[in-house]
Structures are given as C-alpha cells and as structure tokens.
C-alpha cells in the first residue's frame, strides 16, 4: 500500500506559479489518495482563476495510456505554465518526462505502507520517502536514480556520465543537472542544504 498526502497549502501556493493544469491520479487500488483535501485545495485554485483544466484519471504512470487520455486536454495543458500533479512519485516522474518544457510540480508526498506496492513501470521508481524531492530535481527522483540516494548533487564518482557502482547506469545527478538546465531551473540547485528525514511519520514536506 501507498499513501499520498498533500504537501502543505503554503508550500503548494508557493510552487504553483502562473496558470495551472491539474492532474489527479486516483491510481491503483493500492493507493490511498487524499481526495477531499485535493478537492478543497483545487477549488481554492479554481476560485483564484488560475486553473486551465482539471483532469482526474488513474494509472498516470502508464505514459502511453496517459498520452491518449490527455489528448482532449492538449489546449488546456498548452496554456498552463505549470502542471500540478496529485499522485505518487512515479506518476509525477512520468508526467515530468512527458512534458520537459513545462513546470511539473509534485503536490503530494508518498509514504510506504506494508503490502502490495501497486503496478508501476520499471523505468521509474518512487522510494515512498514521504518528503518528495521531485520539485527540486526536475522531476527525476534522486533517491532512486542515484545509487547513493544523494540529495545535494552529484558525487565525484561518475565516469563518462556513468555511475561508479554500475557502468550501465547513468549518473542520476548528471541526468538531473541536464534536465534542470534544459528546463531553465538550475536555480533549484541553490536551494538550502537538504537533509533527509527518516522519521517520515512526522509532518515533513520538501518544496
């Protein structure tokens, strides 16, 4: 099981800049989605007049399927500055990879619970850390893409862009750096020093 929880309203207000397209994933059956809280927050956004569209679907981690289902919303997405994704970390990473030119914001933190973890593609992974870092890393999870799960940038171990641990694995932080550069978000690397919180039952949210 997974639980997704909304980041604090304060954090979300700061993250969601300009016009916003909202994408909700009601996910696999293994996920508990904070529907009431998401609805309330999205109503606030709508009232503020910044929403270009709201679409609720399931299994957004299936990029092929998501591509089809989002076709009718192409115009709403095009006019938005930000895609606000309310899903687990895999969903956010999938959307971020699909829309490299958009600001894709993770609106939830994902927590692990015992039991079946749901059906997700193999290419991306979410550590269910409860303090989603994706808004600082261009939508690429540093915990799963870096073999040391570093959260403050690359180590000196990459050789020819490959990880010191596995020469077949791309350096996760090299990917993050290139992605941030491509989307004009290198400023994210100037964020405060990041230290993980392993006590994830506490209230913690990364921007």
């Amino acid at each position: 099981m997974l639980i997704t929880e909304l980041k604090s309203t304060e954090t979300l207000r700061e993250l969601l800049k300009g016009k916003v397209f909202v994408l909700n994933c009601h996910g696999c059956r293994e996920i508990r989605f904070p529907e009431a809280e998401a609805d309330a927050f999205q109503a606030e956004l709508t009232a503020a007049g910044v929403v270009t569209g709201i679409f609720t679907t399931e299994y957004i981690c299936n990029d092929e399927n998501l591509g089809y289902t989002l076709e009718p919303h192409a115009a709403a997405i095009e006019t938005a500055d930000t895609i606000a994704v309310f899903s687990c970390g895999v969903g956010v990473q999938t959307v971020a990879a699909m829309y490299p030119g958009k600001r894709v914001v993770a609106c939830c933190d994902t927590y692990a619970l015992p039991g079946y973890q749901g059906v997700t593609p193999l290419e991306v992974d979410c550590k269910q850390c409860g303090e989603c870092f994706l808004n600082l890393t261009g939508g690429i999870c540093p915990l799963t893409a870096c073999s040391k799960s570093l959260v403050n940038g690359q180590c000196g171990g990459a050789k020819n862009g490959k990880c010191e641990v596995d020469p077949d694995m791309e350096c996760g932080w090299e990917r993050i750096y290139q992605k941030l550069k491509k989307i004009g978000r290198l400023d994210a690397l100037k964020c405060p020093v990041q230290i993980r919180n392993y006590a994830t039952d506490d209230e913690v949210t990364k921007r």
């Binding site: 403050n152 940038g153 690359q154 000196g156 990459a158 050789k159 020819n160 862009g161 350096c171 932080w173 090299e174 750096y177 550069k181 290198l186 690397l189 100037k190 020093v193």
Partner: peptide, 14 residues
Amino acid sequence: ISDSVDAQLAKMER
C-alpha cells in the same frame, strides 16, 4: 577535469 564539470561547479557552490 570531470566530464560533468558544470555539475561539479554547481556542487562546489553548494
């Protein structure tokens, strides 16, 4: 001399 020298400089700044 890293082939990711820009990423290294970003980390140096951090």
